[in-house]
Design a binder for these strands. Structure first.
Lengths: 149, 149
DNA sequence: TGTATGGTGGGGAAATGTGGGGAATACTCC
DNA sequence: GGAGTATTCCCCACATTTCCCCACCATACA
């Protein structure tokens, strides 16, 4: 299982390409085959799953019953944004227009490692997100993880 | 098994032809032989099954008890609209009039991948469908998939 | 100071979506 | 039943986008 961490701020070029940090590329399993699935993330960002991690998500959706109304809705909402993208020779992904619009990407992108996926944010959007959260790491950790050792 | 995902908005030309996105064509198994079965979908859209996936759906219907009134009704409703269509040289399907009327297709079509099938929507109809759902993916995922890891 | 690594930018070839013409087929109305 | 009309299918042509490759520059490291 991949374990992505760290952050980097890179440029978004005129063709909508964003580099994946070399450190994170190094963390890829061979099964991932230099291929990612980009999709809409919770909050205003783009999720970037390596091929093998994405398969896990997709399998969950595939097991749903397509004769159930809410299952159909979920499959549509989750999959319509997903797109499979391979790295180019320079280790970049080209971000589809629909996703870059959603995330509000302009000329710079903030890349964040998040365990089993990578996230792409517009730097300003991310700053606002943190500001809006208005909670310091200490308090948040207590609430989420519990206060035990 | 095919794994369709992603979205694309294409034009519906004067002859009622709609292109199938190249990415989705690439996901076809060789068994599908560039042939699809189009039929009326749940909610106001058109289902597009590759040949091999359609066989699976048909088998499900075949296994139903034909002495059951509701089973007979379901079989009729599913099959009466089904039509086998091959791609033309440019990777397009020509949508039968009855189905395009049902889906409310005009000059633009939204194509979305949904695991084992492709769906064709009128962009406005789809927008209304999502708006009517009044539920965000986060909540829905929790309800449908369960909140477990 | 030379070398390897990593990010940035751009040019050209191939692929993809779009529109239309014309032959073959089916359909309808007289 | 036949002529006219509409529809379907197959092919070609064009414009745009995408993809792949190469070159450049900056930084880190030895």
């Amino acid at each position: 299982m991949a374990r992505f961490k760290g952050q980097a701020e890179y440029s978004v070029d005129a063709k909508g390409r964003v580099a994946i940090p070399a450190k994170m590329r190094a963390a890829l399993s061979p099964d991932a085959q230099q291929t990612f699935t980009l999709t809409k993330g919770f909050e205003q960002c783009i999720y970037v799953y390596p091929l093998d991690e994405w398969r896990i998500q997709e399998d969950k959706l595939a097991r749903l019953n397509s004769y159930d109304r809410e299952s159909r809705l979920l499959v549509r909402m989750m999959l319509m944004w997903a797109e499979e993208i391979s790295l180019d020779g320079q280790g970049r992904v080209s971000v589809p227009r629909t996703l870059s619009d959603y995330a509000g990407l302009k000329d710079r992108a903030l890349i964040i490692g998040a365990i089993d996926r990578i996230e792409i944010w517009d730097p300003v959007v991310f700053e606002d997100y943190l500001a809006g959260a208005s909670s310091n790491p200490e308090e948040l950790a207590e609430r989420v993880m519990g206060s035990g050792p």
